[in-house]
Design a protein around this nucleic acid. Structure first.
Lengths: 347, 347
DNA sequence: TTGAAAGCGCTAACAA
DNA sequence: TTGTTAGCGCTTTCAA
């Protein structure tokens, strides 16, 4: 009977750089140079070491490397994974990193205010750089992070000293939506947006910006703003939109703060068999599904992939040493589809 | 003028456990005990150390901890983030881990065959355990991983010795779909499924299983199977489904291997204004969007959240020492909606 | 209850 | 071109 301690029940101890060195009959430093493709290694040495690595199935531990320098890892903090806008961004990041030497890890937010925890988690893992996607965190706190590690933020309107910003022009985007709805003749236009509770930084968040444009453009025309606020759980959005459509006098159009809300609105409208003339809907983000002909959601394209790719490139520049903060503002484009089309039926 | 080297331009050196110890006037070991809530620390000591930690903004480095033991991290390998089924799984995992001490990191697959790279990336980071979601990797290779680190796989039908498996009963699921379509009177039923190129392990992959059930049930009734294969890029699916619907004699029903394909089919059908009597569609997975009234996709519910939560719980058991391999098979349920409803119109 | 000391796996200076 | 050596930040015996 073997005396299997828990330790070796879990298989043999993974081999280390020392094991490789011993097997190849060289020093550990030599092995290190080979695996890092460092300068000054003879072909013979490289071959022997490579053979030993293969034989042992050796893999360098990122943790040990982190102790001496870089992890070759970029961390992305993401608010939600089931939101098409954030996956567009992520796809952009992945594309830009594809032929770099960086690995990508994602830290998901576990709740609406988990941005700090997610970013700290990446920081604690000593990633070489962080991309923070729409983190609901105080700007000042983020400056602190940016002072310690290369950082790019996507989707908040701040003006930082120690990190870069990639953001859409939300004022313009909201204006495009409202002008579009006005041009269709709508006057009773409602706006659904995020509840204030999930706005840690109202000053920099895109949603209050869109709201402000909505309100001022309504007032400019002597119309009364009609704002519905929705807290995170999807059920809340459904309820709020059901209530909106069941009013005695309901709005004829809706500007939804983002496409997930717009999908809820489409559901509520569909269940009441409303036509798009009776109730037009425009969203924001242009999630991939928006163009599905059964949804055909009018929305504002924020070019998520390009935002992600740009952020990744900026981050790499920062990792390479750039110190000056950059800000890239993307110009949004309105995508008019059936949900607000001039001559379409909702369904 | 200060002599700012690149190093301190990046802010001061992050404080270490030694800095905390010095400030609190205790040993490093004492600090370590406090931050790990270890046994045998006086209240006075705890207070002094905590104060020092706060003052310095000290954060333990995961890498240094990893050198001596665990990272308190669970890694999830995910094939795609823009797929509702995988996000259901992930939400289940996150829910189950929510009040544990584990952090979660996600390694995304960068391409259809990136499963090995994603899992290796997690392994190299010394996560305490890995959840592999539908990884297209050889079973034998995965056994090797399972021997070295606690591992649970979701969504492949293998029978491993060194990791656990959570999977749906795909034979049953496919049978439910086919019986449903037969009961509606359909005979010309096509099946879209993944291209063989992305099947690294055809023996364990769910899609060939669904395909086999489809084929055998068709043949049992003397019908000719009609299989369309689609490679990863979405455009390929669109093209294939357009071609299918533009045939002189087109099928009257489609069993789509997963919901993303079903959405493509819905698009093609909508563009041709087909009713669901002319072309019924049933998918697989029950992505959250399937129940949207404008899509109303009939599909098979795999209980993604429960799968994820179960996998997370199994993994924690394994981390705690369980050695024997477990396999949990989930019973799928058919969700009949308008896309194949008996008395509904497609739109 | 607290501290001293060793060592985890790797890289970077430096020496040979 | 190769090897020796020191040390990154932490946890863990073990001793006091």
């Amino acid at each position: 009977m073997t005396e299997a301690t828990p330790a070796d029940a879990r298989g043999p101890r993974p081999s280390t750089i020392g094991d490789v060195a011993a097997l190849a009959g060289v020093s550990r430093a030599a092995v290190s140079k080979v695996i890092r493709n460092a300068y000054g290694v003879s072909d013979a040495m490289r071959e022997r070491v490579t053979a030993a690595i293969d034989e042992l199935g050796y893999r360098p531990r990122v943790a040990a490397r982190a102790m001496r320098g870089s992890t070759s890892t970029i961390g992305v903090q993401l608010p939600q994974l089931d939101n098409g806008f954030f996956t567009r961004i992520l796809n952009g990041v992945m594309g830009a990193l594809h032929d770099s030497d960086y690995h990508l890890i994602i830290a998901p937010m576990t709740d609406a205010v988990g941005g700090v925890a997610a970013i700290e988690s990446l920081y604690d893992r000593q990633v070489d750089g962080i991309i923070a996607v729409a983190p609901a965190v105080p700007q000042e706190w983020l400056e602190g992070v940016g002072r310690r590690v290369p950082l790019v933020q996507i989707g908040q309107h701040d003006d930082p000293d120690h990190y870069d910003v990639v953001v859409g022009d939300d004022d313009l985007g909201a204006r495009l939506v409202m002008e579009h709805l006005f041009s269709l003749g709508h006057e009773r236009i409602a706006h659904v947006t995020n509840d204030e509770r999930i706005l840690v930084e109202a000053a920099t968040d895109p949603h209050p910006r869109r709201l402000r444009v909505y309100e001022s453009m309504m007032r400019e025309r002597g119309l009364v703003p009609d704002v519905i606020r929705v807290a995170p759980p999807d059920a809340d959005a459904s309820r709020a939109l059901d209530a909106l459509l069941d009013r005695d006098v309901r709005p004829t159009a809706l500007f939804a703060g983002h496409d997930a809300l717009a999908l809820s609105a489409l559901r509520a409208a569909a269940e009441r068999a409303l036509t798009n003339a009776e109730f037009a809907i425009v969203g924001y983000d242009d999630i991939p599904l928006a163009e599905h002909p059964l949804l055909s959601l009018s929305t504002v394209d924020q070019s998520g992939e390009e935002m992600g790719a740009t952020a990744a490139r900026m981050l790499i520049e920062r990792i390479r040493g750039r110190e000056v903060a950059l800000k890239q503002v993307f110009t949004p484009r309105l995508r008019v589809r059936a949900s607000s089309g001039a001559d379409h039926q909702h369904r």
